[in-house]
Amino acid sequence: MIDKKRVLVVIPARMGGYRYPDKPLRKLNGMAMIEWVYKHASKSKYADKVVISTPDDSIIEFCKDRNLDFDKTSASHRRGTERVNETFKNLGSNYEVIVNFQGDEPLVLADDLDRAIECLIAEEDIACVNLFKMMSYTESEIDQNEVKVVTDVNNNALYFSRNPLPAKWLGDKTFECKVEICVMPMTNESLTRFVNLPNCYYEEIESVDMLRFVENGLKVRMLETKAEIKSVDCEEDRVEAERMLIKQYGVL
């Protein structure tokens, strides 16, 4: 709880993704990726409940075996935030802050989760907070799994893309890009508004949830993390994330 507001952290996860079909249950340093996410989220000082949201029986059986809270959802959702909303409704809708903490972010620690929640509470005119990290332009050019974002002077998102942003139109430049980290607290009102809005043009092209907010004129505040974080979208990412976890925790 923060400022008398109850906080629900939802971890959407499913099997069968086209980029890495079984990634939620792939192990990193001896523990399944989704369990790393659950472990870190559970250390939040604000989270009143942490739950894995999934349509898949294999993930549900995994949660049962390890006593992880879960909610079974429809298999028809096209966006993780829509799955988060179903779990929010299934649990009774009695939370003021809902966090979409995606299941492929095993390196995000509770400190950054809590900073994002604090930012949401402090800024009444924003719909959502989204973490980001800085990445070298060269690295971001070759990885379309990493979602890039450009922001205004107040760090509100202007656009998200899987292509490099900004462009190196005027020749060689040395600069970094802002890369989305999928930890996204929002109010119950903004979550409800998200699911009641139609899918948007650029949201469909880029396959990025946050563009539904941006295209409808709602503010997504980008909050930088300095932590060493690697999202997992393929086997090469898993190997790199495992190396980073071993560095952080030692061998389990």
Rank of each mutant, 00 (worst) to 15 (best):
K5H: 02
V7L: 05
V10L: 05
M15F: 12
M15C: 10
R26F: 09
K27D: 06
A32N: 11
M33W: 06
K39E: 08
K43H: 06
K45R: 14
K49L: 14
E61Q: 14
E61Y: 11
C63P: 06
N67G: 15
F70K: 05
K72Y: 04
K72V: 08
T73K: 12
R78W: 06
R79C: 03
G80V: 01
V84N: 10
T87V: 11
L91Y: 03
N94L: 00
N100I: 03
G103C: 13
P106A: 12
A110T: 03
D112F: 02
L113A: 06
D114V: 04
A122I: 01
E124M: 08
S136G: 15
A157E: 08
F160S: 03
P164I: 06
A167K: 07
E180N: 12
M184Q: 13
L191S: 04
P198W: 10
N199M: 10
C200D: 05
D209I: 05
V214D: 09
E215P: 13
N216K: 11
G217F: 14
R221C: 10
L223K: 05
T225F: 06
K226A: 02
K226T: 11
A227Y: 05
K230A: 11
E240S: 09
I246P: 02
Q248P: 00
V251N: 09
L252W: 01
